[in-house]
Each structure stands twice: as structure tokens, then as C-alpha cells.
Design a binder for these strands. Structure first.
Lengths: 136, 136
DNA sequence: CATAATCCGTAGCCATTGCTACATTTGGTG
DNA sequence: CACCAAATGTAGCAATGGCTACGGATTATG
């Protein structure tokens, strides 16, 4: 009989590349934050922030350099390209909206911070707009 | 001067294992859904559902078997263990709440479906409770 | 019941993100 | 300036999740 199984609403094919994009978003956001906070962003700052080894950071920074989101020279701080800065601003804004939304919804700040970091990557423009309306 | 950079609110170390858990959640939910819909769940059903090759499904099913979430014999349908069924029910309930929440928030159904699938994995108990309150 | 179609497993490749161990560069300090 | 500590890079391994190609198992069909 073979009932048809419908594919996921969003062919969430490319799980791998989606995860890679999330990493990119997290990194540019963190780099921007650190540059704002302490003037520069080192590999070890990112390693401590994400709780991973400096090796992991180093490799990801290299990849994001290939994607023209970051630049850095060996043994030098990491900086954002124009493209990376633009992305970082978008990500940060979205993150802040999601966080404010969860708090407004009644989630305690600690849990709102935790969940917003996971949720933010999956909030599309329509959902983001709905959150903004809710905040007004 | 070295200002301290605070670590992420949730040491989101082990990104890899977190992603693996998300995969487990997606799979048990899908298996339960298919068994409800058509009586059994085959590897190819999952492959079509997730838009990946049967090889990918096969390997993940094997891993989830090791984790005692699924069981299956070669060339046979996939079934849920008690543990897998319990997880699937939790995941499905959470998914439904997130979906209903987004729709209630004013997101159109299509986008609510897309975003809920990404968001659900990052909704902690406190956030889920807040969403339930909002729905009442 | 034989054969074809479908399903599924295995081999083996790649990318991403973890790691430890070791090498190198930078920068500060005597 | 020489040397040490801290920061970063490199080599190489593992786990996860993608893939194609190929072969074996099951099922359907004449």
C-alpha cells in the first residue's frame, strides 16, 4: 500500500552546512563582542568563551577566513571583515531580540540566556517579526 | 590588562555531542510518527523524510541501537525501545507545544513548522513552561 | 519458483568539530 | 639580548554525518 511519507517541511538536508553556518554566526558574534569589550580578540579568548581548545578555534578561524568573514595573520588577533561585521550585527540583534522575548515571556534570565543561544539560529524572519511585535 | 572574558552562560562545550542528541531526538520522533501513520518504519522512509541517503540513516540507526533507543534487525523495519518511545513522546509533545506557540504568536503555519523543528531542541523546561502558560 | 525491483548493508571517501602532543612565535623581564 | 612564559600553529587521531558505488537480502510478480 505504501502510504507516502511526506518529507520534512523544510528539507533539512545539509545538516552539516547548517551547523557550519551556526558556527560562523557564533564566532562572528563572539569576535565582535570581544573587540567591543577589550579592544581585541585572540584565539585563546574564543577558546575560553566557547570552552574548546585553541586548536579547534584556530581551525575554525581559518575556515571563516576562507569565507571572508574574519581575517588574521599568524600569532595575531582576529578581526572581522566588512562582511563578517555585517553578519555579526545581524546575529547580535537577533540574539538580543530572542533574549528579550524570552524574558518578556516570563523565562528567568539565566534560562533565557541559555535557550536564546540555541534558539537564535533557528528563528526565521517571520518568527523574528512576531517576537518584535510581542515586545511592543 | 587582560579583561576577563566570561565563558558562555552554558558552556556549550561538546557541540558535537549536542548535535548527536538532536539527531537522536529527530529520529525517534520520526520513527514514532511513521509507525503511527503506516504501521512500520523502514530505513528508506527515514531517508526520504530527512532527505538523506539510506546509508546515512543506516549508520545513525545503528548508533541509536547502541544507545538503546531503537532496535532493528538487518533488512527489517526499525522500532522504538521503551527508552526510545519515552523520549519520542517527550520530543513530540515539546515539538507540538513549540509549533502551537509560534502559530499563536502570529507566525504563519509554514514558517512555524520550519522554525519549530529547529527551535524545539533548544527549549528548556522553563521556556517550555512559559510557552504553555502563553497558550492558555 | 524464477527473476526483477526494491530495500538495505558495507566499503570507503570527505568535511566539521572535538582532542592531545609537540613545535614555533611573540612579548615581557632580568 | 637572552630567556621564559604565553599564545598560536601543526600533526594526527576520533566521532558524527554527508556521499557514491557496489553487493546481498527480501519481496513482488509473472
Amino acid at each position: 500500500m505504501k502510504d507516502k511519507i511526506k518529507a520534512r517541511s523544510v528539507p533539512f538536508s545539509q545538516t552539516r552546512s547548517r551547523h557550519a553556518s551556526e558556527t560562523a554566526e557564533d564566532y562572528v558574534e563572539a569576535v565582535m563582542e570581544m573587540i567591543e569589550e577589550k579592544g581585541e580578540c585572540r584565539v585563546l579568548d574564543l577558546a575560553r568563551y566557547f570552552n574548546v581548545s585553541h586548536v579547534t578555534v584556530s581551525r575554525i578561524v581559518k575556515r571563516l577566513q576562507d569565507e571572508k568573514l574574519l581575517y588574521s595573520k599568524p600569532y595575531r588577533p582576529v578581526a572581522l571583515t566588512a562582511k563578517g561585521f555585517k553578519l555579526a550585527k545581524q546575529v547580535k540583534e537577533r540574539h538580543e531580540i530572542v533574549l528579550a522575548f524570552l524574558i518578556e515571556l516570563g523565562v528567568d534570565k539565566a534560562n533565557a540566556q541559555i535557550d536564546s543561544e540555541g534558539i537564535e539560529h533557528h528563528v526565521g524572519s517571520k518568527t523574528l517579526a512576531a517576537m518584535k511585535r510581542f515586545l511592543k
